[in-house]
Design a protein around this nucleic acid. Structure first.
Lengths: 362, 362
DNA sequence: CGGGTTCGGTTATACGTATGACGCGCAGGA
DNA sequence: TCCTGCGCGTCATACGTATAACCGAACCCG
């Protein structure tokens, strides 16, 4: 009957709780720094100085406190548009990612947005559903003028479309040699894949295949390279490599063929968790048990890594930190610095999808 | 001395590359509407009129075209900060979601951002990692003044924290009776759960349990209600209900207990896909096959719904459309309208995780 | 032919903030 | 006594845009 009994508890019996909010559903104009000045009995300039913390030695402490109190009482909040207009910047950074709904990039965005918020800036995502493509002028479609761009895991050709804005560019998970970017922030994926390789070798696996992402970007090339190196160094080179788009169904189909080769591989290393989920699917369909008959590994540590059964052994990339570090790098560039390349550590996470190599078939 | 009077010297001549980009790595100042005006031989006001498409009957077509061409040649892009300052709005909308990295909300955000971009606005996400909690002043932490707020699936108590800004508020997936919101956009989840119930009943299931989200929000209450109603109408009431947080591991643990009850249920309806993945996990651990021994359903149709094996029967919620519709509703409110409640259709998606009820144990 | 009306523009100004350029009163030194 | 310097603040202005107010000229109609 009453599915929301608590909603009736009178929250606002009186008109206003004397709080900072101007309220007045429609038309209450927001207080300006001038209003604060008037209330505190000082000039608008003083308000600006105090509220921006640039008052040391220019405004006496008691007055400064008075200003702050007046601002609090009025619920004053500086007008970002005016501030930005005056100070030049737009306060907006564009984050370009290959796939908007991908959890990994959502985490990157979260990290970047958090750092941006500290500086009163905001991050807009490039709204194109599918990559950059023919570049319908990212800046226009973002609907905002921008201070800079952070681009993640982009194909080199798409990068070029991003250039031409003359905007500071920070690249994530991309070739540090790329001269287009003012800075680069990379997770140490090679290290991650070397550990994956080492883990499998230590478990006795000798017939290992690679399910690679069908995407020609630096980060995926590095993954393949690092894995191949690690295995070669143990005289147990990759048996085969196949490529699939980052889609579970396609990955399952491709992995199915990979598992049909003889001698059958005992482990499949995947470029990311989605591919790994596909590989697990293919294994089940082929009547193979994971990890008893086949070990599977991924990269990213997405939510689905723990959603599937068994849970995926994977390499956790510091997505939030990548976003945050990238944002900080961009801010440094905007301040005239030249941050260069940064490499972030990754974490190898062993879980249930890997086990000792099956014995009978060696 | 005006310190930038000499900037006008080379108005048309050769100082700038013909291309649209100002380039000049560091310091090329962006062209303003005044620059465009000068180049086109008109006044700044005319430029504004033309570029905002408000010139019909006020500027002659050839002149308008000249202005547009000058703008193109200079690579002119209006200064959003100035525009917003002048026109009052901030051009920024806050999107409040319970979990930033949740794929569902990423899709909501994508939909909202796309609509916002059409109007030159942008959407910032509330950067708090975990829900609203004690509300550390969302508006301040967003680092921006705002035109309005879109809040999704919030608990009523958290809502109250959002109020007090006096900002137009649009709710997604929430109680339409809630008087706090100017508009509400809901997916027709009850319909979805009725169909789930009908689907299972038609498949012969009579011992059905409900794995509910341990979250006290309207949308989840409705899911439980609709499911219970549908089953009751067929004289086959819910056997039991258990609650778990939206976490695969916890869901698996709770579902494990649920499956241990006798007589054993033949189907478990989950409030969302994450819970369903947990239920599948529990089933495997209990030695039950899905769907032969146990049918499982979810809601949302996240990526993981097709990542697990078997793929999940689920109800696809139109996340992008919710975001887009919510944004449009907010824009209408900002224009003085009163959109009220909208209900969006959902899609029932049968997949491999449901099948006929097992026969032997009836 | 003169007064309105329309067409095609311009001028001026305001939006709210940040900040360089100025006081102004007072203490201290010459 | 006058000048200097310093501590405290204020004044004025510019950022780039949108728009109300205005204005000359051509046109139209009686």
């Amino acid at each position: 009957m009453d599915r929301r009994s608590e909603a009736t508890t009178g929250d606002g019996t009186a008109t206003e709780p004397a709080g900072p909010s101007p309220a007045g559903a429609a038309g209450a104009p927001r207080p300006t720094s001038r209003d604060v000045a008037e209330r505190a009995g000082v000039s608008q300039a003083t308000v600006s100085l105090v509220l921006r913390d640039r008052w040391h030695g220019r405004v006496s402490p008691p007055r400064a406190e008075a200003v702050r109190e007046a601002a609090r009482e009025l619920g004053y909040r500086p007008n970002l548009a005016a501030r930005r207009l005056r100070s030049g910047g737009t306060g907006t950074v564009l984050l370009v990612v290959p796939a908007l709904t991908n959890e990994f990039f959502a985490r990157v965005h979260a990290g970047a947005a958090a750092v941006a918020a500290e500086r009163g800036m905001s991050v807009v995502l490039f709204p194109s559903p599918e990559g950059i493509g023919p570049a319908p002028d990212p800046f226009a479609s973002a609907g905002a003028t921008l201070d800079g761009v952070i681009a993640s895991s982009m194909a080199s050709r798409a990068l070029r479309a991003l250039r031409g804005g003359g905007l500071p560019l920070v690249m994530l998970d991309s070739d540090p040699e790329d001269t287009e970017a003012a800075a680069t922030v990379n997770p140490d994926v090679p290290d991650g894949l070397r550990r994956v390789g080492g883990h499998l070798l230590a478990a006795g696996h000798r017939r290992i295949v690679h399910l690679a992402a069908d995407i020609d970007t630096w980060t995926f090339r590095e993954r393949g390279r690092a894995l191949a190196e690690e295995l070669a160094s143990a005289d147990s080179p990759l048996l085969a490599t196949a490529r699939a788009a980052l889609d579970v169904r396609e990955a399952a189909a491709v992995a199915g063929k990979l598992l049909a080769t003889r001698p059958r591989p005992t482990a499949v290393v995947c470029d990311d968790d989605v591919l790994a989920a596909g590989a697990c699917k293919a294994a089940r369909r082929a009547g193979l048990r994971v990890p008893e008959d086949l070990s599977v590994t991924g990269v990213d540590d997405l939510a689905l890594a723990t959603a599937v059964e068994p849970e995926l052994t994977t390499v956790r990339l510091p997505a939030e930190e990548m976003g945050g570090t990238g944002m900080r790098a961009l801010l440094e560039v905007l301040d005239g610095g030249a941050p260069g390349t940064r490499v972030l550590p990754v974490r190898f996470v062993p879980r249930g999808s890997t086990g000792p190599a099956p014995t009978g078939s060696g």
